[in-house]
Design a binder for these strands. Structure first.
Length: 257
DNA sequence: ATGGTCGGCAACCGA
């Protein structure tokens, strides 16, 4: 089984990259964030032609998440909390026997702002959602763009960004509560070294060429899946394109059974 | 080298 996550920064602008990648890599599922498309305009046909199903929740201009999969997503949930989420950042379901959660955690802007507090609240809501609805002893995948770098080796300039949004102790504490609950950061488990990033900010000149990036996208899994995980890697192809995306694909492979 | 990011969507906002 092969699972990937990718912040698309517009699924329509990135559609050829995504379809090419699906055809070449043939994953069982691809979790995407920042689709930036309303549901009525989601490019369903392109995925159908490539042999994939899609479940999505979008909104105008911002955010938006989708799960693209070989077999259809079942028991789909499009809201993190009771009632209707004001922002399209969460979609979950089940593919075969496997429960899957796809998240686009708020970026947070800057500590002390309302956006930053919203980010922390959102992560707390996700945590309580897990505690309420899932058992850490059962298989579960939680992946997406968490907008948090955990350790100094997870961003190019830890000193420079210390205490800012994306590298702040309050965010990191919340990330570690996911780990305490029973989720494992699969990339980190398989790759103890630093300098491996999933995001390079467009605003840093030649940031990708100079590897000035951040590791803020994750594939997290509970113990029964961790032991089946054979390989985790980052595919920088979309970031190296002439018309690059700011994030890259993060992929994990598992033994079946 | 007197410039220097994207995408959505129509003037800026968010990342």
């Amino acid at each position: 089984m092969k699972v990937a996550t990718f912040n698309t920064n517009s699924i329509r602008a990135r559609l050829p990259i995504i379809i090419d990648w699906l055809v070449r890599e043939q994953p069982d599922m691809l979790l995407v964030q920042e689709t930036k498309v309303q549901d009525k305009d989601f490019p369903v046909d392109a995925f159908d032609d490539a042999g994939y199903q899609v479940a999505f929740r979008g909104q105008k201009s911002y955010n938006g998440v989708a799960i693209i999969s070989r077999s259809p997503l079942q028991d789909v949930v499009r809201n993190l909390y009771e009632g209707e989420d004001e922002e399209a950042r969460f979609i979950s379901g089940r593919i075969g026997d496997l429960p899957v959660i796809n998240v686009y955690v708020p970026q947070g802007f800057a500590p002390g702002t309302e956006k930053f507090h919203y980010k922390l609240r959102w992560m707390e809501m996700l945590l309580s959602h897990l505690e309420r609805k899932y058992n850490a002893g059962d298989p579960l995948l939680v992946a997406g763009d968490f907008n948090v770098a955990l350790e100094p080796i997870d961003l190019f300039d830890p000193e420079g960004y210390r205490g800012e949004a994306g590298y702040h102790p309050d965010e990191q504490k919340l990330m570690r509560r996911f780990f305490d609950w029973g989720l494992v950061d699969l990339f980190r488990k398989q790759n103890p070294g630093g300098g491996h990033y999933t995001f390079w900010d467009y605003r840093i000149p030649n940031g990708f060429k100079r590897n000035m990036g951040w590791r803020i996208d994750y594939i997290l899994a509970t113990a029964p899946l961790v032991e089946k995980c054979t390989r985790v890697w980052i595919d920088t192809e979309p970031r190296a394109k002439p018309k690059p995306s700011d994030h890259t694909f993060l992929i994990a492979e598992f033994n079946r059974g």
